[in-house]
Amino acid sequence: MFEIGLTHYLVVATLLFVMGIFVMITKRNAIGILIGVEMVLNGANINLVAFNRYNGMSNIDGQIVSLFVIVLAAAEAALAVAICMNFYKNLNTVDVDHGDTLAG
């Protein structure tokens, strides 16, 4: 109980990951979906760092990959917000259910 191991972190990461998927499924707001994506990426990141830590940390591969994930998440958020703004400009809403017309 008071000896924290790899499994503890993996459980938290799993739950965060699944919550992120739930948010992605249920939210209608485009930015809400983006928040879900961020949660999923965070869950994955905890996995990477935890595995790195509990493998003795003789190298830092997991941390470097998680660094790349964080950078990718930032880039993705920037693009997604730009897309949301375009979406809003065209359709006057950010409800993704209205994004089913190809004519824009």
């Binding site: 928040i35 961020e38 760092v49 935890a50 998680s66 660094l67 958020a77 917000v81």
Partner: peptide
Amino acid sequence: LLANFIGVIQLIVYAGGTLILLIFG
């Protein structure tokens, strides 16, 4: 998890950058 650098990068990029971008959006 002894990953100080990832922790601060998480704070500065996610909490200080991405999140503000989201709220801005």
